[in-house]
């Protein structure tokens, strides 16, 4: 259940993918996502898929971990797949009822969409499994740093701090939600059955304690941060300095050649 959500869970390792500069990884992720949608035929999409699988393999994160994230997203995948089935507007009609019809074109669209979403999950998982949440936020802070020239310096820092804390507390709060759910179930609460309205109502005994405890945590955390001399972003240094190294340029080169490959395959097939 809630345990299955492993997004944002770092998987310790020393692979090339782990060691790549997180800023580079984020930029590459964006680039690859754009190109996943640019790929428009089976060859270019297939090529991209192979490259992404290679990336997943060299990340040395167990394949099962990737598949687990897929499982979580499966309903969305099926839903988009079905919607796309009916969106085809060409090709042979395979099936039709009421005002809807499924065409070969629709089948292609559905498959393409499903493959794209799968790839999307894979590449984003590759990023989150190989990059600590802190590195991610640091990278985002660093990538957004040009904003400070237009007077948004403290905003950039605040955003990064918020993300760091959110990432740190997500697993804690998930665990706490599970505990509270179990405690209320032990008091006979029925959280699984009933109509939507009843189920939403049944969540109140879970949400209120969770909210109260989050407020308490926030208060205690604020005190702890004050004790650790936190005073906003002003004058703050970082232990970890991010450096672009040769490895990062190779990663960049790899990604660009994948993109190039996709365009080439798009044109020639």
């Amino acid at each position: 259940m809630l345990r299955d959500i492993t997004f944002g869970q770092y998987y310790e390792g020393r692979s090339v993918v782990h060691k790549t500069d997180p800023r580079v990884k984020i930029l590459l992720l964006i680039l690859i996502i754009v190109f996943i949608f640019i790929a428009e035929n089976a060859f270019s999409l297939g090529f991209a898929a192979v490259m992404i699988i290679i990336t997943a393999i060299i990340s040395r994160v167990p394949f099962g971990m990737y598949l687990k994230n897929m499982k979580a997203i499966l309903p969305v995948l099926i839903f988009t797949g079905i919607i796309n089935l009916f969106y085809g507007d060409g090709g042979k009609v395979l099936l039709s009822f009421w005002k809807l019809s499924v065409t070969t074109d629709g089948v292609y669209r559905a498959i393409f969409m499903a493959v794209r979403i799968t790839m999307l999950i894979f590449v984003s998982s590759a990023l989150t499994y190989t990059t600590t949440p802190n590195d991610l936020t640091d990278a985002i802070e660093s990538l957004l740093s040009p904003l400070k020239f237009i007077g948004l310096k403290s905003a950039v820092h605040t955003l990064a701090m918020m993300m760091t804390i959110a990432l740190r507390f997500i697993p804690t709060l998930i665990e706490e939600a599970e505990k509270i759910m179990n405690a209320q179930k032990a008091r006979g609460a029925d959280l699984e059955n009933g109509r939507l309205k009843e189920r939403v109502k049944a969540l109140i005994p879970v949400l209120i304690p969770l909210l109260i405890s989050s407020v308490r945590r926030a208060y205690e955390l604020a005190e702890a941060m004050e004790c650790r001399c936190y005073n906003g972003g002003e004058g703050r240094t970082r232990m970890k300095q991010m450096h672009m190294s040769a490895r990062d340029f190779w990663a960049l080169a790899f990604a660009i050649s994948v993109c190039g490959g996709i365009i080439t395959l798009n044109i020639f097939f």
Partner: peptide, 10 residues
Amino acid sequence: VFQYPEYQLF
């Protein structure tokens, strides 16, 4: 009765 049961009061 779970550990710290007071956290389930609502």
